[in-house]
Nucleic acid binder design. Structure first.
Lengths: 156, 156
DNA sequence: ATTTTGAAGGTCAAAAATAGTCAAAAATAA
DNA sequence: TTATTTTTGACTATTTTTGACCTTCAAAAT
């Protein structure tokens, strides 16, 4: 017997279909449909729709809340995905961040202004913490920014 | 289903339009139009039309009372300096950061892509730390990014 | 001039509507 | 059996919506 998670995963992928690269669902509604705990939906999203697999999740709580699943277009975002999934690990030095940002700039993935913003956000001044934590923090900040750029690639 | 608050926000922004910098509404009338509690109007005003987002509210009670929504007109440079020197202190919540970035966007100080980058860099996902340090860190990241934008303003 | 009154708007806390977290239990796979 | 994955549920977090009660203002009544 196939686990429910697989069905839920398939269902969401079906919702995305061919042309759609983004879909909004309501966690409780989905859970109701599959007669499972709402947290199971969260489980599926966090195990099957990761950046690693080419997806990004956004969500909002409260009235009118939702979970948005966005599929990244792999062809366009190839190098970005590599950086996000491989190159950025648990920690990134300031030097490494600068190098990666430079590459993105040179290949035209980001503008000069955008690159400057990214450098600012990952600079030592911005990330003012005990050494042990610095590089970890920077990894998080850089990753989220790259995910954001990858999201926009999809629109182009 | 989008929350009512978003509709009310959009409605008020439509009233303001491009050229108008201020508009008067009647709380009860608006509430009647949207079939909601009058206090919901107050809620929308106090969450979406804050100084951080570039608006101030004035009002008068009693017969002929009104609520006036005023869009602040500050020069971009002044506003940036205010944010950097006054508004961003030792700590900034995720919500406050979003509000400030939103205003920069509406002001045309940053592009949609740049705003998205800034949101990503200051998001809770990017800044994944013990609560105590989060807001402090975010303040640093946001400040450095704004300084960067200010720098470029100067050159242009 | 003073008081009354009805028409605004304001406050605040509770309820409702969502989603997230985390650890334990259950099911499977090795 | 042991390790891993799935499933669940209790508890938390966030956002929106509502309602009961409070304050202020202007015009009418005295």
């Amino acid at each position: 017997m196939k686990p429910l998670s697989d069905d839920i995963e398939a269902f969401i992928k079906a919702l995305l279909g061919e042309d759609q690269d983004q879909v909004d669902v309501q966690r409780n509604e989905l859970a109701g449909y599959f007669r499972c705990a709402p947290s199971q939906i969260t489980y599926v999203l966090s195990t099957r729709f990761t950046p690693d697999r080419g997806y990004v999740i956004e969500s909002r709580r409260g009235g009118g809340g939702f979970v948005r699943i966005v599929r990244l277009k792999k062809t366009k975002a190839d190098h970005l995905l590599y950086l996000i999934n491989q190159r950025i690990g648990a920690s990134v030095s300031a030097q490494d961040a600068i190098a990666m940002i430079q590459q993105l700039l040179e290949q035209g993935t980001v503008s000069e202004r955008e690159a400057a913003l990214m450098r600012a956000a990952t600079s030592a001044r911005a990330i003012n913490l005990p050494i042990a934590l610095k590089d970890t923090l920077r990894a998080g900040v850089l990753r989220e920014m790259l995910l954001q750029v990858a999201l926009e690639q999809k629109e182009a």
